[in-house]
């Protein structure tokens, strides 16, 4: 396989999708986890709700993983099909699919983590506001979902 082959471009697209999603989730869950640790030390009975809030920014990593799998599957590379007949243009198209999935995952994961951390503080003050805290945090995730949506649409258009 040459360095600038269509297959390499597909791989870069899959890596962009997964890697940035993972980074976004890592940072987001880190924000929420720090806030959660402080609250659990004071109110351990809230652990279940805090864990749920911390898990919310984990979705972006999951979408990134799904995106990477879809890219590899649509391009026919899943399972190591080295005899693929992809062109450079198609390789570039698969690479570009990874960009909206990856970057929307990165940024929305970070911001969702930040809102989830504030949501955890809200729950610590009044645990009857759990539902509202979840909804506010989940709103940001919409953009990561749109990222994977446009990725999927692009894949069906290649």
């Amino acid at each position: 396989m040459e360095f600038f082959s269509p297959e390499v471009l597909v791989f870069i697209g899959a890596v962009l999708s997964a890697l940035f999603g993972f980074i976004g989730s890592t940072i987001g869950m880190g924000y929420a986890g720090r806030a959660g640790s402080a609250v659990v030390a004071e109110r351990p009975e809230l652990f279940g709700r805090i864990l749920l809030m911390q898990a919310l920014p984990g979705s972006q990593g999951i979408y990134g993983l799904v995106g990477a799998f879809l890219i590899l599957n649509f391009s026919g590379l899943l399972g190591g099909d080295v005899e693929s007949s992809l062109t450079m243009a198609q390789g570039m198209q698969y690479l570009m699919v990874g960009i909206p999935i990856g970057f929307s995952g990165l940024l929305s994961g970070m911001f969702q983590g930040s809102v989830a951390a504030n949501g955890i503080s809200t729950i610590a003050k009044d645990d009857s506001l759990t539902a509202q805290a979840i909804v506010l945090s989940a709103m940001i995730e919409t953009w990561a979902i749109f990222g994977i949506l446009i990725g999927f649409i692009l894949l069906t258009a290649i």
Binding site: L65, V66, L149
Partner: peptide, 19 residues
Amino acid sequence: VGYFADVLSYSRLLALGLA
């Protein structure tokens, strides 16, 4: 669009099973 975005969120079922 909101309903469609909600449906896409269920793709996590695939991802977690895969993982």
